[in-house]
Design a protein around this nucleic acid. Sequence first.
DNA 1: GCGACAG
DNA 2: ATCTTGTCGC
Length: 225
Amino acid sequence: MIQESLKKQLITENGFNWSCETLKYVGGVDLSFSKNHPSIACASLLVLDFQTLDVVYEDFAIVDLTVPYVPGFLAFREAPVLLELIEKMKKSAISSFPQVLMVDGFGLACHLGVLADLPTIGIGKSLHHVDGLTQTRVKQLLQANEDSSSDIIPLIGDSGSTLGAAMRSSEGSSKPIFISVGHRISLASAIEIVKVSCKYRVPEPIRQPNADIRSKSHLRKHGLS
DNA sequence: GCGACAG
DNA sequence: ATCTTGTCGC
């Protein structure tokens, strides 16, 4: 199976020579779907200056997706076009090529990280039910941890492995975000980077593409939308 | 009681 | 993904 083959190549420890202090460019990828035509999407890759959270690079691609969305197999639908955008930027030798990439979805982050050979962090706005993880279980853990110092709890599956962490990025928010172990990065480092890049609930590298594409497609709603 | 499940 | 509902801030 392709997923198992890729899993063997997954590295869950830091494989980079920079630290949070020297991290300069953090990327984000996302797909935004057309309301009218469900198979048409705008894929985006953008890069933020980690210190200022300003967007320093952006690229888009309009695609017609033929692979359907199947829970657990998101990467087969979304990874190809995202990989294209990454390769294109890499080929262009643009100086702001990201040192780490944020990706929507747990498995997609791992999948894309291995294929692009890039450190990736998975960001989830909702929980992917896998390995015995449930919404209620996470809620209970966060509830129990409410008085404690940390707003971050590890997500440990039935298999005993740590798949990521749930983090309440805004005070009092009942909806946490989910940070997954990606590729070539440790969960601890991933959490640090996400914390710093959170202006709102969703970290900027993931939030910005949505806002940007919105305006872009709104601007060109005459042609495609 | 129904439906649960990244995007 | 998108939609809906609820809460809060403008």
